[in-house]
Every structure is written in structure tokens, then in C-alpha cells.
Amino acid sequence: MKKFFIKKLITRLVYSILMILFLVTGIFFLIRLLPGDPVQAYYSPQLGKELAEKIKSEHGLDKPVYIQFTLWIKNILSGDFGYSIVYKKKVSYLIIDALRVTLLISLTSLILQIIITIPLALFLLKHKNSLIDILIDKLALIVYSAPSFIIAVILIYFGSYLTKFFPSSQLYSHDFYQLNSIEKIIDLLYHITLPVLTLTITSVSFSLRYLRESLLKTEKEPFVLALRANGIPENIIRYRHILPNALISYITILGMEIGSLLSKTLVTESIFSLPGIGWLMVNSIFARDYPVIIALVMISGVMVIIGNLIADLLIARFNPQIASESI
């Protein structure tokens, strides 16, 4: 089993690296396909011919395509994505700053989602077919149908506009740097409550329905009946036997969610104007900040590939049946 796991790990790893290379190459050629001269676009359309040539040779744009390509790969491997046109900063610095914010809210909401979903699904299993079960199921369906921006707007309306309790945008208050460390943490929590709630509500409504269904499905399986017939207490059946079996499919979903962490927060971050990856993306589009856009698409693609890898490995770890089939 362990040997198999390591073998799978290695094949998946090699495979993921190949995918990332493929992604990088694809983006390189997509940029080549674009109309217009990059020098004119980035510097000024009114550049003189000599100056334009000089800048071109400075950036290696006069060299043949394959040399440019190796240069591109080299730069990306060393984490150099060029300079942002708007912020006049290295793109990698910008992305690291933004990534911190995005990971903060998305990981918090992921953890919250796990904490809420599993006990709630178990509770619903215990009170299966009761009024509360049906109500929560229908509510989850409706909430699941609401796109995250609608949930965000509703939360802003009730939490921020009507009650004036939570701030509706930004990550810090304007006097953040004068606060002491405890107040800083409270201020931060205060600001990320609504965005985190938005993300949590959307993901809980989805995963709750999923987990509930798979719990109910597992409960119908013959081994549960056998356990019941043997007189094993219901609680033990539920926690020791049904839950682990049902969790396998839930873990698949979690893996998918890790992959789409960045794109999921895009809308939420833009609404709450949190300086994360999604916000950076939308703002760079409005400002036509191409180096940042290219870097962000690449990073998010890499995140999805890594997320899929994690999901596959998690499934392989928890579900030996799938693991032994194939990669």
C-alpha cells in the first residue's frame, strides 16, 4: 500500500510539473499572438524609432523566439514576473502581499466550513426526515443557488448598512498603524468577518448538501444494517462507520476547493475591496496592467494543479479502492 502510494505520488508530481510547463508555454504563445508592439504599449506610442529599438534590445525582444522563450522560462522559475505598470513595483512582491490576504480569508473560511459542515450534517443524519432536516436542506439549496456576490451584498445590507456594525470594505481601519497589537487583531477580525462569512455560507451550502446525501447513501448500505443487527450502539455506528465512509467524497470536494481557492475569492474580494489576489486581478484589468494579469493567471493555474494533486493524494490516502484502480 505504502509503496503504491509513493509511486502514485511521484507520477502525479511529474505529471503536475509537466502541466505547469504546458501552462507557462501556452501563456507565452498567447501573448505572442496579441496584436500590437509591446514597446509601444508599455512605454509610449510616440517613441522614436531608435529609442524603441534600444528598449527592445534591452528587453531581449529582438532575439529569436526560442531564446525569448528560454528567457521567459528562466525568469518565471526564478520568480521574476517583471514590473507592474501601475504600481511600479516588482510583480512578485505585489503577488506575495495579495496572496497573504487571500490565503487568510480563504483558509479561515475553509476551516470554518469544515467545522460547521461535519457536525451539522451529523446532526441532520440523527434527525433525519424531521422538519428541521427538511428545512435546512431546502434552505441550503436556495443559498447554494445564490451567487456569492448576492450573499455578499445581502450581508453588507444587514451587517453594515442597516446595523452599521461591520465595515463594508477595506482590510484595516484608517488608524490601524496607531493601534497596539491586540487592537490590531480585533480590527482585522472586524474587517474580515463579512467576507469570510460570505465565503463560508456559499461553501457550506454546497458541501452540506453533498455530505448529507453521501451520509444518507452510506447509511443504506448493507454493512450498516449488519452492524445494527449486531446490536452496536447507534452513536458508534454513526461516528465510527458511517462518517468515515461518507467523508471520502467530502474530501474530494475539499480538494477541489483548495484548487479553486483563488478564483473563488475573486468576486468577494472585489466587493469588499480587500487587497487580495482577486481584487488585484480585477484592478489590473481596469488599469490594463498586463504583467500582473499574466502572472496572476499563471499563479492561479498552478494553484489549481497543486490543488488537484492534493485532492488526488488525499483520495488515494483515504480510499484504497480508487487508489488501486489507476492514477
Binding site: 502541466m19 478564483s263 494579469i293 493567471v297 489549481v304
Partner: peptide, 22 residues
């Protein structure tokens, strides 16, 4: 199938925004 997996690795919303930008 590799092509399919490659396309799956690009988040739809990011891809859309990327194309719109250009």
C-alpha cells in the same frame, strides 16, 4: 485527455477575465 486536464487547471473566471483584458 491531457488537453482536457490542462484546460481544467485554468479557473474559468480567471480565464474569462484574462481574455476580456486582452
Amino acid at each position: 485527455m491531457r488537453l482536457v486536464e490542462f484546460s481544467l487547471s485554468i479557473p474559468a473566471l480567471f480565464f474569462a477575465i484574462f481574455m476580456i483584458a486582452f
